[in-house]
């Protein structure tokens, strides 16, 4: 699980061009959107692609996304349960 979280942080930093950040800068329970990391709707779409491409999870309802993308913790838990890759 810890490996998966670290892997996710690296992927997010790369896909979202968060060049100034390192894995240590993102805590597991920090909010990814709004007041936390401050990601926006385009970033959410990138996260959806990461789920699909790297873990074989297809998200169709954007409402699910809100819960899943709350934090690294919630993302990792969801991926661990649903991944097909």
């Amino acid at each position: 699980m810890e490996d998966l979280k670290k892997e996710l942080k690296l992927k997010i930093i790369e896909a979202l061009n968060l060049e100034d950040m390192s894995v240590e800068d993102i805590s597991d329970d920090e909010m990814l959107f709004e007041e936390g990391l401050g990601l926006d709707s385009i970033d959410a779409l990138e996260l959806i692609i990461i789920l699909d491409k790297d873990y074989g999870i297809k998200l169709t309802d954007s409402k699910d996304g809100k819960k899943i993308f709350r934090s690294i913790e919630t993302m990792a838990t969801y991926i661990a349960e649903h991944r097909s890759k």
Partner: peptide, 11 residues
Amino acid sequence: ADSYASPANFV
């Protein structure tokens, strides 16, 4: 094989 367009680029 792996053609996922990136929204962050496309925008």
